[in-house]
């Protein structure tokens, strides 16, 4: 989960996974993805019990809104 200077730099990266072509995300989308309501409460005294459990649903909603609905983004099952 890294930032790069551009997509071209990602593809030139020595550890680039060729199967990750769908792994790009624009910075504004990333800011939305990591700026959901629960994130704004990370300093609240009850964050872990009250806010963190809502994080998964929020993330799913953002991913759907920005069109990242493949298993790559939604989470593939662990190998058996």
């Amino acid at each position: 989960m890294n930032l790069f200077r551009s997509e071209e730099h990602v593809r030139r990266w020595s550890l680039f996974n060729p199967a990750s072509e769908e792994g790009f995300i624009s910075l504004p989308e990333l800011v939305e993805f990591f700026g959901t309501e629960t994130r704004r409460h990370m300093l609240d005294a009850d964050y872990l019990s009250a806010w963190y459990p809502r994080r998964g649903a929020e993330r799913l909603a953002v991913l759907e809104r920005i069109g990242k609905t493949s298993p790559f983004w939604l989470g593939t099952p662990a190998p058996a």
Binding site: F4, S20, S26, L27, L74, G75
Partner: peptide
């Protein structure tokens, strides 16, 4: 501020498939 303006995020293994991979990838 974003410099260069072309900065982009990248997920190298997918969220599920990244299990067992170095987390920084």
């Amino acid at each position: 501020t974003v410099n260069p303006r072309t900065v982009v995020g990248h997920l190298n293994y997918g969220f599920g498939a990244s299990r067992g991979k170095p987390p920084y990838l």
